[in-house]
Design a protein around this nucleic acid. Structure first.
Length: 279
DNA sequence: CTGGGCTCCTGTCAGC
DNA sequence: TGCTGACAGGAGCCCA
């Protein structure tokens, strides 16, 4: 589910409400992708700081009386966070897909994740321990001022994979998942099957703008809600209304009327306009 | 080192 | 109505 816009929308929707909250209790459901680690004691009585995002990860710093560290969260394919002010575990018993609950004095933070591809991992710091390891291979933030055509072009050079897959890999620029990679390529008029290294410098410039632009637009729209994405207050996104190609197989291209095609790349669906994205 | 394919898990939906 | 297979927003890992 969640690509960068959904994660950022989630972050913004609860960061202020949870900042300064004191941890009271931790509850775990079924195992997630990775084990939590030694969080339980460190969290006891800890205070939550400013929530950060890196790629599709969230970082909840916790300053504990004894130790200091934080929780690195990933929503996987089907995860979402809910923060309910004033709520507690007694009043809101966990459902079958609620696999992580953080009870604080300000309310209840809950991760719901039916497929359990998501994760919550305790780390002593963002740039040390498990968090550092998980974030090590991530590319540049799309909203970083240094992210531009030059950076993208340099990252793509020497790569024979299809440009769509190079974007998805997230080691050049983070944040574009299956929906936004398709959308950005459409906006830039680039064929998703083009070999990454074959993208000219001027076209890389256009693609960089498209990636940044579409992600910003999606954040603005509250993210994409295909099925179940909600921000931490239960508000759905609306970017799906603005999608130009994703999920539109067989429907006419908004620009030229040609039916949108669906192909499979790396076991994932790619949607594109065979006319507007010829090369 | 790169690239391709598989895998984790559960839910939903189309087709028979 | 019930079963089966395809597919779903991610990304680490293994192998050639």
């Amino acid at each position: 589910m969640p690509e960068l816009p959904e994660v950022e929308v989630t972050r913004r929707s609860f960061a202020d409400a949870i900042a300064g909250a004191e941890v009271a209790q931790l509850r775990l459901g079924k195992p997630l992708r990775w084990p939590l680690g030694q969080a339980a004691e460190a969290l006891q009585g800890g205070r939550i700081g400013a929530v950060l995002r890196r790629g599709k990860y969230l970082w909840l710093p916790v300053s504990a009386p004894v130790e200091r560290g934080g929780l690195l969260l990933h929503l996987g394919m089907s995860g979402s966070l809910a923060f309910t002010p004033q709520a507690d575990l007694r009043g809101s018993p966990p459902g079958p897909h609620d696999h992580f609950d953080l009870q604080t004095d300000r309310g209840l933070l809950r991760l719901t994740d039916p497929r359990r591809f998501g994760a919550v991992v305790w780390s002593e710091a963002l740039d040390a321990g498990p968090a550092a390891k998980l974030l090590a291979g991530l590319g540049m933030e799309p909203f970083d001022a240094r992210f531009n055509g030059e950076h993208l072009h340099a990252g793509l050079s020497g790569r024979r994979v299809a440009i769509k897959l190079a974007l998805l890999a997230g080691d050049i620029v983070v944040g574009a998942g299956n929906i936004y990679a398709c959308e950005a390529l459409f906006i830039a008029g680039i064929n998703p099957r083009l070999a990454a290294a074959k993208l000219s410098r001027p076209r890389a410039e256009r693609l960089a703008l498209a990636v940044r632009g579409v992600l910003a637009q999606a954040v603005e729209a509250g993210g994409t809600t295909l099925r179940d994405f909600k921000d931490a207050h239960g508000v759905a996104g609306s970017f799906q209304m603005q999608a130009r190609v994703y999920g539109r197989e067989g429907l006419p291209c908004f620009d030229c009327g040609t039916p949108i095609r669906r192909i499979v790349q790396g076991q994932r669906s790619t949607f594109f306009c065979p006319q507007c994205q010829k090369r």
